[in-house]
Structure formats: C-alpha cells, structure tokens
Amino acid sequence: MTIPSPTIVYIVDDDAEIRRSSWFMLSAAGLSPRVFAGGADFLEELPHLTLGAVLLDLHMPDVSGFDVLQAITARNAAFPVIVVTGFSDVSAAVRAMKLGAIDFIEKPYVDDELITLIESAVARCKDADQAQECRRAAERKLALLAPREREVLELMLAGLPNKLIAHRLQVSSRTVEMHRAKLMSRLDLPNFSAAIRLAIAAGMDLRASLEA
C-alpha cells in the first residue's frame, strides 16, 4: 500500500471540539481528514482503511492511544502515527514512540507545526533510505555528547526533574542545569521536544530511562 494524494489523515480523539477544529484546519491545508470519536471506532474500521497518517490522542477513555498503537503494530499496518500529548508529558511521548509512533506534538499545537509534522511523517514513510540517513545523522549528533551529558539526557527522557537527576548522579541541581544547557547547545536543539525526537531517531535504547 502507498499513501494516496492528497494525504488522508485519520483524527482519533474523544474531544468533539478538537475533532472539528482539526478537520477544518487539515481540510484548509489541502489534506483529506476523517474523524473518529475514539480508539474503538478507529480500530473497528482499521482493516478497511486506505493507508494514511493518524493524528492520535493518547489519553482517551476505554481504548487509549497506547492501545491503538499496539493494535496497529500487531497488524503490521504501516500507518505513520503522530501522537498528541499533554504539555511536557515526556514519558508518554517516549512510550508512544517506542510503540511505533513516528512523531508527537504537544497540546495546544500550532497549525503550521502539525502540517509540517504530517508532511515529514508521510515523507519518511515513503522513503526508507531517507529514514536510514536520518538515523545516522541523529547518531552522529548524539556522539558529540560527553558521557555525563548523555546520562543527563537519558534521565531527562525518563521524565525526571533536575532534583531527582542530581540525586541519581550525586551532583548538585546547579550542575545538572549546566549539563542540560550544554547538551542542548551542543546538539543545537531549540527545545526538549526536539531532544526526544533526536533520541528516538537515533534509536537510543530508552528502556533504562523508562524504568528509572
């Protein structure tokens, strides 16, 4: 299966207002959105759906976004999934991407940012060679980090605040802040969301972080 043009985007969210606003925004951008009121509705239709991108809210009642991701993976469906998380919900974003999500976006999101993520997700899905080059580029970036900076990054990805990172590494909170600033500068990243994407793109083993 290949993703048709215009790109179909399946909006899976239990919030009616978000479904409505997302539908209008994606339609205006020239995409072809279709809405689902929850994970169960989407999974019921999944075997019959044309390949497209999925904008998936993680925190839904009954069938959560995590359940949907697991079902997509179990069926070997090649839908590029962008998950919607709460602000600074680091552990949820990392868990979702370990389950197969291509990217994530935090609420409230900017329209242009979402369109860019969808276009990027679809492009990566179409070009496996490009995906491999992205991984190699991300690995080269992470290799620039000093060992202590990488430790701090891994603990940040686990969702630990500076105080707990300091306790874990037996250093001061001020030292953690310095390492955090240095690693963000060294990696030339604008924000922590970008750090998560880089770590996932590089295939960083996050199991230890998730268990921290």
Rank of each mutant, 00 (worst) to 15 (best):
V176S: 05
E211C: 07
A40D: 08
F192N: 05
D14R: 11
V152W: 06
A78R: 15
I115V: 15
D57P: 01
N162Q: 12
A131E: 12
A123M: 11
L46P: 06
M178G: 03
D67E: 14
V35W: 00
A208E: 15
A181P: 02
V54N: 01
I200E: 02
D13C: 06
P108Q: 06
E119R: 13
F66K: 10
T175Y: 14
E44G: 14
T7N: 05
E149S: 12
E44D: 14
E177I: 11
E154N: 05
D67P: 11
D111Y: 09
S21M: 10
A138L: 04
D41R: 07
R124W: 05
F36V: 07
A77G: 12
Y10K: 07
E149N: 10
G30H: 02
H59W: 09
R34T: 11
P190Q: 01
S172N: 03
G203N: 01
R95C: 03
D112V: 13
S64G: 02
S22R: 04
P6V: 09
L56H: 11
A92P: 04
A199G: 08
E151K: 14
V54R: 03
M97Y: 10
R186N: 11
A121T: 10
N162C: 02
A78Q: 15
E113K: 13
A16W: 00
H179V: 03
